[in-house]
Amino acid sequence: MLQMVVCVKQVPDTAEVRIDPRTNTLVRAGVPAIINPFDAHAVEAAVRLKEKYGGRVTALSMGPLQAEEVLRRALGMGADRAILLTDRAFAGSDTLATSYILARAIEALSRETPVDLVFCGKQAIDGDTAQVGPGIATRLGFTQLTYCMAIDAVDLEQGYIQVQRKLEGKREIIRGRLPALLTVVKDLNELSYLSLPALIRAALATITTWNKDNLDLDPAQIGLKGSPTSVRRIFAPPARPGGEIIPGEPRAAAATLVARLVQMKIIADK
């Protein structure tokens, strides 16, 4: 029986976030929110392990009340229960504070039944930091296995998990001691299409919410106060100085361009 926790984050569909050029602030209103795509694969992975080895999957998210939606999605994918960590005091948390809060919640769950595996996405597409997973692993003292693209085996008796990690141009096969925290890439699995009864169950399920008082937290380590990084300024990406259109028919334009590049010695003789 594997006790598993999956951390899922609600993120804005990033393609649509814009910056207001006048006020230099983010225009986030009305941008649809989705489950962080990597986290969906993390849920899928946990649910498949449950089917194979037995156990229980808890989906965990920190965010505003609307983040309930991504937890419902996790439930629809087969998670057994969902917990939303929501509190005004959590607002403004950077990755250090976020990993602290999530780790405290996982510790609380571990007091019920010890947790064997925690799953995170490789990174959240809004911040792209890939820091929360390692942060949680470090705080819990779990084996940290990032960029997992395959789970080869779990042996509860021997207390290890063997995974394949996706590295630059390489694949690493590594065996780690349990308990462990995995961050996952999309190659790990294909999301399965849910059955209708599962979807209905998820839509009707109640989601547990925990606020700061449900967790044993050091107030200095959460929210803005617990976040060492701060944003000094945000701005629209600088435009690269605009270009020159080479006129003429394709052939003539090509000849002009090639001559230009050769002349600039940018492309030289091989």
Binding site: A15, V17, I19, D128, T229, R232, R233, F235, A236, P237
Partner: peptide, 17 residues
Amino acid sequence: RPAFGGNVMATILCRRH
């Protein structure tokens, strides 16, 4: 660094740590 899928840039400080 770029944030939100590169749609914005953010300058970040770590003041006290």
